[in-house]
Amino acid sequence: MAIKKMDIVGRRSYNCDILFRVIDIVEKDGRQVAYLYGEYIRLAADAPIEDLIVMGMAEMQKLTNEYRSKEEQSLELFRQDVTLLKQRQEYQATGGYANLTNYFQIPGKVLHLDGDQTYLKKCLALYEKIGIPVFGIHCSEKEMPERISGFLDYYRPDILVVTGHDAYSKAKGKKSDLNAYRHSKQFVETVKEARRKVPSLDQLVIFAGACQSHFESLITAGANFASSPSRINIHALDPVYIVAKISFTPFMERIHVWDVLRNTLTGEKGLGGIETKGVLRTGMPYRPEYAQEGE
């Protein structure tokens, strides 16, 4: 079967362990090469056409079910965390339930920049399911550094996500060499520009990176959380689980890194960060007669 753009394929040389979408097919050194984006993993790759196989429905469904099972497990663990956080907040807001005053909560507002429109839609659906206010923008990784300042001025978020596709290429240099990565350099420059705008690590919480990204450079540039310490692949939805924990943690509390990572799909090999304050704020009284639906 001929390979064409937007086909879902696997790589024979890797035992078809990851589902990829074919983004483009080009002539390179006298043979056809396909550019690939992971369907569930934030990985960019290329491969000769002869190494690819169009995945059948049975194989696709099997891998899809595995990923969705992991997603649901992470979502359930996160919901349990949020329930405990809300119970603790209710106890504190009411003086140990002594004063039954109505109160309201304002979770942290997220600006999510994503180099992949399909991933962005998946992430926005999860933000909505969890109940996090978010602005999502599809923006190519190369354009992010020059556009981030304007986005921050316009949206004024509490949390910034800078993600998309990335990959480390051994042929281009050592793992310590930023130039050996597909988009890590652009992510680093975007974080630096954001920090020029908002220097404080607590006034703007930043997650940056994708699969195999240069973790150390992103943290040094000013990200609170980043990928990928062990240069492994991360799941498309991992950034959402990171910022959701931050969004629902009160601003007077500090979040230990493990508390953020434990419910992600990738864990500490693919994600890391520094101790960070939450951004949730509680107020009172809550006046339901003035509340708009959806607020």
Rank of each mutant, 00 (worst) to 15 (best):
M6Y: 14
D7A: 08
I8F: 02
I8E: 08
I8L: 15
G10W: 00
D17N: 15
D17Q: 10
F20E: 01
R21E: 14
V26N: 04
G30E: 07
V33N: 04
Y37H: 12
Y40P: 11
A44G: 11
A45M: 12
A47K: 05
I53W: 02
V54G: 04
V54I: 15
V54N: 02
M55A: 01
M55N: 00
G56S: 06
M57H: 07
E59R: 14
E59A: 14
L63A: 09
E66Q: 11
E66S: 04
E71R: 08
E71M: 07
E72S: 11
S74C: 15
E76W: 01
L84W: 04
R88P: 02
E90T: 12
Y91F: 15
A93V: 10
Y97C: 01
A98Q: 09
A98N: 14
N99I: 08
L100D: 12
F104D: 10
V110L: 05
H112D: 15
G115E: 04
G115H: 06
K122E: 15
C123T: 09
A125N: 15
A125E: 13
L126A: 07
I130A: 02
V134G: 08
V134F: 05
F135Y: 13
F135P: 00
F135E: 13
I137L: 10
S140A: 12
E141W: 03
E143L: 11
M144A: 09
M144R: 06
G150Q: 09
F151S: 00
L152A: 05
Y154D: 08
I159H: 00
I159L: 14
V162F: 00
D166T: 03
D166H: 02
Y168Q: 04
Y168G: 03
S169R: 14
K172F: 13
K174N: 13
K175W: 03
S176V: 10
L178W: 06
L178H: 00
L178C: 05
N179A: 08
Y181M: 05
S184W: 05
Q186C: 13
E189F: 10
E193V: 00
E193M: 04
A194N: 07
A194H: 07
A194C: 01
R196C: 02
S200W: 03
I206H: 07
I206M: 07
I206Q: 12
I206S: 13
F207D: 00
A208D: 06
L218P: 05
L218E: 15
I219Q: 05
A221C: 08
N224A: 01
P229M: 11
S230H: 12
R231W: 02
I232K: 06
H235T: 06
H235M: 09
H235Q: 10
A236C: 12
Y241H: 06
Y241K: 01
P250I: 04
P250D: 03
M252Y: 07
R254L: 12
V257N: 06
W258S: 14
D259W: 02
L261F: 05
T264A: 03
G267S: 10
K269S: 09
L271I: 03
V279E: 04
L280P: 11
L280Y: 04
L280W: 03
T282E: 15
T282L: 15
T282V: 15
M284V: 03
P288Q: 00
Y290D: 13
Y290M: 15
E293T: 14
G294S: 09
E295T: 10
E295Q: 13
E295Y: 11
